[in-house]
Design a protein around this nucleic acid. Structure first.
Lengths: 122, 122
DNA sequence: CTGAATCCGACGGGATACTG
DNA sequence: CAGTATCCCGTCGGATTCAG
């Protein structure tokens, strides 16, 4: 799952990691919420390319599992915010370990893939 | 991903974790190889219910990414062994962190799920 | 703005049968 | 023993459209 260097870069090292948090977007969402509550639209910015459907689904799953909390502010304009629960924040710990691994080893990963892609026989 | 307590128990806490290693079986396979090389058939035992197809696929992916190594011993009976590469072993570190998280928080996870399953409105 | 509904192609993964 | 081949269905996730 994406992390810090260029968390949302399409060629982000962490995206190569065999370690994943939930579905395709869950890890990134959690990271996005690390610094505080975010609105639906705000989340769509860093998660370039995510569709409303995909975002909604990931959000629902995360919410169901008690990792994030959804707050709907009814006002002149509709406003919904999502934020990490304590449980969700506790997840940051292992995520960090996973991210660190990815950052340290993604080149080896790529090397191995290229080696098996190009020439069989190592 | 499954881990120690009852790594392959269908209700294993770690299986509830949002943190996953590769595909459905990859994490378990890596853990199975933690203590040394294992044969194809040997892997199928703890991975109760895995089909040859699924095992082969996971193994190939792991191999492609340089996490495990495949050795084919041609002899009277065919024998193929798989073992972790140094890169694969390095993955055990973050996996352990993920497993620890699952062991500590799976009850909260379940609570949250049941709460949202049974009664909307928390 | 925050979704829900629908359509659709790609992939995952189980069952079963077959092979060297 | 160690796979491969085929079928099949459920889910993932993107695109598009509609609604409160």
């Amino acid at each position: 799952m994406p992390l810090d260097p260029d968390m949302f870069d399409p060629v982000c090292p962490s995206d190569l990691s065999p370690i994943r948090i939930g579905d395709k977007w869950a890890g990134m969402i959690v990271r996005c919420l690390e610094q505080g509550p975010r609105r639906f639209s705000e989340l769509r910015v860093p998660l370039r390319g995510i569709t409303a459907k995909a975002l909604t689904k990931s959000l629902r799953t995360l919410q169901r599992d008690g990792l994030i909390e959804r707050t709907s502010h009814l006002g002149p304009v509709r406003r919904v915010e999502y934020e990490l629960t304590p449980l969700g924040r506790s997840l940051l710990q292992p995520m960090t370990a996973a991210c660190a691994w990815a950052r340290e080893h993604w080149e080896e990963l790529l090397d191995a893939r290229e080696a098996s892609t190009g020439g069989r026989r190592g």
